[in-house]
Design a protein around this nucleic acid. Structure first.
Lengths: 231, 231
DNA sequence: TTCTTTTTATACTGTCTGGCATAAATTAGA
DNA sequence: TCTAATTTATGCCAGACAGTATAAAAAGAA
């Protein structure tokens, strides 16, 4: 659809037959297939059918099956991170951010219905992680990145008094990631969204402390829903 | 090795050529192969090589590849549950039990070294869960069983005053399962055992409350390491 | 038109796939 | 020794597999 860059960012077209596919759209279609069937069970014929590309075009554009899979994983990671950053645009409290974060995750995982699919990387990469070190390294880095991102938000909340200063931000971040992981797996087996949001809510209370009724609070904060720091 | 039951529990042998393999040992070898390579990437030739059985013997004993996989999953589940029950034999406190529980899990996941493999079901079943409803149902029931088992231990701890009476046992159990899930995935990508035990320790503190220094405590309990109930 | 460049389309290869048919081997009991 | 029962061993099949060689098509540039 959108005829993208031919080489230079300018509108100049390169010589040669123009490609009939959109690379990013093809990656998206390939990812859908891997997402549903898993890496090993997805054949090149499946990918040809999903992308509408011919086999040689697939190889020219993305390399072999493994390289294509890694590219779809990276695309997924980039989009997930971009989405997470968007949730921070209006500087929400940690509690509000985490709620958005898990809601956004569940939007992607499509829990509950027959179209449940879970998290792409957590659902498909572990099976390949032992025999394919590139997949293993990607997954390890991806999980570490999630930990680091969440720890950053928790540390900021600590600085602003929303989380107890003596809490272990690293441990809380790993707990938040653990919650994401369990939601990822449970959504893949069809657990309805409502139940998963209640798991997320419990985790948020663990991290931010349970919500307390409106009352005078000695420590100031900016968010509307105040949280009680844990001892 | 151990010539097992021929049909009746008695030592009576059935007529016909005796089988040269031990069914449980064959299941264990098949599971090892699926565990390492994943379900879809494991070929029947791999299974023949691993078990030492011939193809027709495999089919006669366990059915086709999918049925064999399900049988290895059930075997894994049964053994895991039996092991968990053993940890309760001396009626430990919840804190002590949970520590044992995660340690035992990591023994199975073999974290840290090059022989890391993660949790069998969590590492291999999700990839198949969309296209194979039997696998999906098994995994859903397995996760639900873990939740229920842990909730039972937490409820008992509540009755004995080790956990705050107003805590949500169901939510705490799901948090404990979430911790197991994140450890399962992280161990598959090679995160060392020490780091994973520290995640588990943080989760235990969340559930049981952090350990406090020896001091007079109004509420009685049986365990040596007293825990502070959360507000 | 003609040349060059790039992509598409067709077809092919040798290997591997899951599953099964068939026959040989090994035992218990008659 | 003979028969029935059970397992093992060999071999085969039709289809699917990943990956590639080769030629046709479609564009810009000269």
């Amino acid at each position: 659809m959108v005829q993208k860059k031919s080489k230079s960012a300018e509108g100049r077209r390169a010589p040669g037959r123009p490609r009939q596919y959109d690379p990013d759209q093809a990656l998206a279609k390939a990812a859908e297939t891997f997402w549903k069937k898993g890496y090993a069970a997805t054949s090149l014929d499946d990918l040809v059918a999903a992308t509408g590309m011919q086999r040689p075009s697939l190889y020219a554009a993305f390399g072999d099956k493994q390289q294509l899979y890694l590219k779809t994983l990276e695309r997924y990671q980039q989009r997930s991170r971009a989405m997470s950053l968007e949730l921070l645009a209006d500087h929400p409290s940690l509690r509000v951010f985490l709620k958005r974060f898990y809601q956004a995750a569940l939007d992607i995982y499509r829990t509950g219905g027959s179209d449940a699919r879970g998290c792409y990387s957590i659902s498909t990469a572990p099976a390949q992680a032992i025999t394919d070190s590139a997949v293993r390294d990607f997954l390890a880095a991806s999980i570490g990145g999630t930990d680091a991102f969440l720890r950053k938000q928790i540390t900021r909340a600590q600085e602003q008094g929303e989380v107890a200063a003596n809490a272990d931000a690293e441990a809380l971040a790993q707990l938040a990631t653990a919650t994401l992981h369990t939601i990822a797996v449970r959504s893949r087996v069809g657990v309805p969204r409502k139940q998963l949001m209640s798991i997320a809510a419990a985790a948020i209370d663990m991290i931010c402390g349970p919500l307390v009724r409106q009352q005078a609070d000695s420590q100031s904060g900016k968010s509307a829903g105040r949280a009680l720091a844990r001892g």
